[in-house]
Design a protein around this nucleic acid. Structure first.
Lengths: 159, 159
DNA sequence: TAAATATACTTGACACATAAACTATTTACA
DNA sequence: TGTAAATAGTTTATGTGTCAAGTATATTTA
């Protein structure tokens, strides 16, 4: 797998059309590899990245949240959230509770088992963050954050 | 859409557990936004990012390529490539040719229509690259590339 | 208060990532 | 030469992103 990815990179390496293009592609490629590492870790606990994210949100909030509120806090587009919650519920990691005041609303709560699964992942996740960004010095980390935010601002402007 | 994303960001903003975590999340979020922008552009020409990528590879090579060779050069995992080529073929953007020497091999060639679609995208794509990375000075671009590569090295090691 | 509108989801359809298992063909080697 | 192993690609199955359209409940308004 490692050899394969390396090979891909080499084949792709041809002169870039602009420095900006090089940076964008570099960003996408790096991100891809980072995501792969996290996905692999989550999979060891039978979670997908999206599922892990939702559990994190619920634990962070400390109380049940309406489904659309969860969707708002993830990158997940609304219709996708339904099936995502379905599967988490089926796995016993969350629970659905219909709101009595407003019966359109569905609250989602993390279960004990969900909390347990999350807590098992806490250390490895933090370790992976550190391992990925480990080669960067504190100053470099700060630089990277600043540059990324600058890019992000440019995407925010015109939607 | 823009307001919604901004809202998400604000809600997410709580103290990070480590500077490394902050950098990783920053990286993922930035990347997400960049991908959204490109996906939106490709969709205007009825292409998905994966499809665009494959067309680029074929045009860059200048001659037909075996299916698995294409898969190697993208991030696409092997089984997914079949359907991807199916849809491109159905849209008339590529053509399948079975190799006569080795009948296991299927060559894929870009069609005239595929080339045309690609060329229509050339300018907007380059413009988007420039627009996304525009806020960064040449020196900052270089810095960003260096930092990203450093991160990428760390993922390559024990992958 | 009845009808229009808005809100909170859900369903259905399609594209893609990913893994496991399968087919067809070729190559290696015993 | 004939069988095992490797290679090229496909099929199948599950999870998710995304869009368009639908349902149920609540709110607004005429």
């Amino acid at each position: 797998m490692s050899a394969k990815r390396l090979q891909k990179e080499l084949k792709k390496r041809r002169p870039f059309e602009s420095a900006e293009q090089e940076a964008t592609l570099n960003l996408l490629r790096t991100c891809d590899q980072v995501q792969i590492r996290f996905a692999r870790l989550f999979r060891q606990h039978d979670l997908t990245p999206s599922q892990y994210n939702i559990l994190r949100i619920l634990r962070g909030e400390g109380k049940p949240l309406p489904i659309l509120e969860i969707a708002d806090r993830t990158v997940t587009i609304v219709p996708g959230i339904t099936g995502l919650i379905d599967r988490l519920e089926q796995a016993g990691l969350v629970r659905r509770d219909r709101c009595l005041q407003d019966r359109r609303v569905v609250y989602v709560a993390i279960t004990e088992q969900g909390t347990k699964t999350l807590s098992e992942l806490d250390k490895p996740v933090l370790a992976l963050h550190k391992s990925l960004m480990g080669p960067l010095s504190p100053i470099e980390l700060k630089d990277l954050n600043r540059l990324l935010e600058k890019v992000r601002e440019s995407t925010a402007e015109n939607s």
